[in-house]
Amino acid sequence: MPADLDTKHGGRRLSLGPLCQIPVGEGRGFEAGNERIAVFRPRCGGVYATQAHCPHRGGPLADGLLGGTTLVCPLHAWRFDLASGEVLTGGGRITTYRVVLTADGDMVIDLGIGSP
């Protein structure tokens, strides 16, 4: 279970462990607190986190394809922008979370300021 690092600002910051758990260009599913999230490591750099399931039919977003910061759901190819959460194939948004890296290369996710 990831350690609860910080609860100030009303947010919850949880460690997801080392970045190397995710291969470059792919995503993986994580459990953080009681939340399911998908964390991505696109080739263009950065680490992004979103809700785990596609708003369309619940597809596992972590299994999607990445092109830049565009994510494509593996089930019916809905597309999303990882940075903004925007649904590129229709409109609306998915929940995104901020992820930062510690000096040791661990990912820390901030569940508190997830966008709706």
Binding site: G17, Q21, I22, G29, E31
Partner: peptide, 15 residues
């Protein structure tokens, strides 16, 4: 071939 190639959810065994 890749890290956690066959893992549905990390950390492994978390739930």
């Amino acid at each position: 071939v890749t890290a956690n190639q066959f893992a549905t959810l990390l950390p492994k065994g978390a739930s």
